[in-house]
């Protein structure tokens, strides 16, 4: 009986509020450029597009399911030991993702091995778990995790696109700059491959984003 009552009060699966959770992280609440979370991996995996995309997918999956699990457990976790519980859940999920990648896409997983492990210390996870999943119901938390994962992936792909294109003249591993250009004296910018340029690229992305959306500007 009581279950039926709850079901009646429930919002529809994709209410406006839930859709907003999915849409906001893409721009207004982007995890990388607005919430400043998950910068370390954004710098490390963005030299090429392919690892960046696999990384973005893995982070999305781990964030979504970690949010789901933590949100389902949120009333039983004593707040004093919540960090350890959260990390245990995240570490377990990361180990699963790592094993799946090893089983199905072995060469990509070999390229990513260190970074997949570092998902555990990706601040997006802890940030969203602390700020959202600990205080909300499982379904919105799950959507929030997916939204933030996609917002993170979007920035990764943009940064990786520019670094791969300007740094090695390639797009997703294929050379796109015609040979003639090199004969005319065009050179790949080796500086783009070095980590400092990832920082500056993200800085420029923030610049562009904030000049388009005025409400994000800081005084």
């Amino acid at each position: 009986m009581s279950e039926q009552k709850i079901a009646k009060e429930k919002e529809p699966m994709f209410s406006a509020k839930v859709l907003k959770l999915l849409k906001n992280p893409l721009n207004l609440e982007n995890p990388v450029t607005v919430q400043v979370l998950g910068i370390c991996s954004a710098l490390a995996v963005t030299v090429q597009m392919k690892p960046a995309i696999v990384m973005a997918l893995s982070v999305t999956i781990v964030t979504a399911f970690a949010s789901l699990i933590i949100s389902a457990l949120r009333n039983t976790i004593p707040s004093r030991i919540r960090i350890i519980v959260q990390l245990a859940v995240v570490a377990a999920l990361v180990i699963i993702v790592d094993q799946v990648l090893k089983a199905y896409v072995y060469d990509v997983s070999k390229k990513l091995s260190v970074f997949v492990g570092l998902i555990i210390t990706n601040c997006i996870l802890m940030g969203r778990l602390e700020a959202y999943a600990m205080a909300n119901k499982p379904w919105p938390s799950f959507v929030d995790g997916i939204g933030n994962g996609i917002g993170y992936g979007l920035i990764l792909v943009i940064v990786a696109f520019f670094r791969e294109f300007l740094g090695s003249g390639k797009f997703y591993g294929m050379s796109v700059i015609p040979k003639v250009f090199y004969e005319w004296g065009y050179m790949d910018n080796g500086l783009m491959i070095l980590p400092p340029m990832a920082l500056i690229t993200i800085g420029v992305i923030i610049w562009v984003q904030r000049s388009r959306t005025k409400e994000l500007q800081e005084k």
Binding site: T33, V34, V36, P195, P196, M197, A198, L199, I200, I202, G203, V204, I206, W207, V208, Q209, R210, S211, Q217, E218, K219
Partner: peptide, 17 residues
């Protein structure tokens, strides 16, 4: 204006790096 705060700190860190 759009570069204030976070944007400029990214670029500063890049230059320091």
């Amino acid at each position: 204006k759009p570069l204030r705060g976070l944007g400029i700190s990214f670029i500063l860190t890049g230059l320091m790096a």
